[in-house]
Amino acid sequence: MTAANNEYPKASNATLIGASITYVAGLFLLLSFAGPYWIESYPEMFSSFKHMGLWEYCFDRFRFPSYQFDKLFHGCHYIFSQEFYVIREWLLPGWLMAVQSFVTLALMLSFTSQVLLACVIVRWPLRTVLRYEWIFVTSAFIMVAVSSVFLFLAVAIFGGNCYRRDWLLYPSFNVLSWSYAFAVVAFILFGIAAILLYLESRKLYELRAEAKNLVAQMQHSQPEHALHQLRDQLQQQRQLGYM
């Protein structure tokens, strides 16, 4: 087996398909993570709230009722910006911080799994991947599966709380938007990829166990083979001595 002649075993089709689905799901997750359209207001309602994402809110001359000063919040701003300092507690309830945490962790895990799968596909570093491929694929499977679970929790929590009346005013004017839909698509794709990677990791583990058994059998058979060779050599020497 030489790397120069590409005679080493390639990655299986299941790994390639699982990795491809993981990359597509990662793209949807990235767009959802950065997109400011988890929920938006109907255009015909002319609401002062326009749309929001995990890290950004957009208002059109919005006046917060509980704020004692006559201040209008206008434009799109980062949720931790100075502009939203006085209403940040209202904009960022505990359940939304949980959604942010789940999506962020899912993004980090999916990116790490993509790096591992890329190493398996391109066979780099070659010796390490060929020796520990089942560990690479198993680790990627665990990360992808956990990412899918985290995203499921994120979309479930957000979908169950986004119409609360103690959060955005006039929730009946709002509708879930494409950033939220991308998160749903990402968690479904991660689930499919996790199934494929799980099946492949089991297959690689079984092949590894068979290889270990074969090596053990060869090691046990070597002393007997060496003993037979020694006896044959002694017999040949005796025959030569008699002649």
Rank of each mutant, 00 (worst) to 15 (best):
A3H: 06
E7M: 10
S20M: 14
T22Q: 13
Y23H: 04
G26M: 13
L29H: 07
L31Q: 05
P36I: 09
Y37P: 02
F49P: 01
H51Q: 14
G53P: 01
F59P: 03
D60T: 06
F62C: 07
R63D: 01
F64E: 13
S66W: 11
D70V: 05
K71E: 08
F73A: 00
C76F: 03
Y78S: 11
F80R: 14
S81H: 06
Q82N: 13
Q82E: 15
L92F: 05
M97V: 10
A98D: 12
V103K: 04
T104S: 15
M108Q: 05
F111H: 02
S113F: 06
V115M: 13
A118E: 04
I121L: 12
V122E: 01
V122I: 15
V122S: 08
V122G: 00
R127Q: 15
L130M: 14
R131W: 04
R131G: 12
W134N: 09
S147I: 03
S147L: 04
S147A: 14
S148D: 01
V149G: 12
V155A: 07
A156D: 08
F158L: 14
F158Y: 10
F158K: 09
G160I: 04
Y163A: 04
R165D: 11
L169Q: 13
Y170H: 14
S177W: 07
W178I: 13
Y180S: 06
A183D: 12
V185Y: 07
A186C: 09
F187K: 07
L196R: 02
L199G: 02
R202M: 07
L204W: 00
L207A: 11
Q217I: 09
Q217W: 04
S221M: 10
Q222N: 09
H228S: 07
L230H: 08
Q236S: 11
Y242T: 13
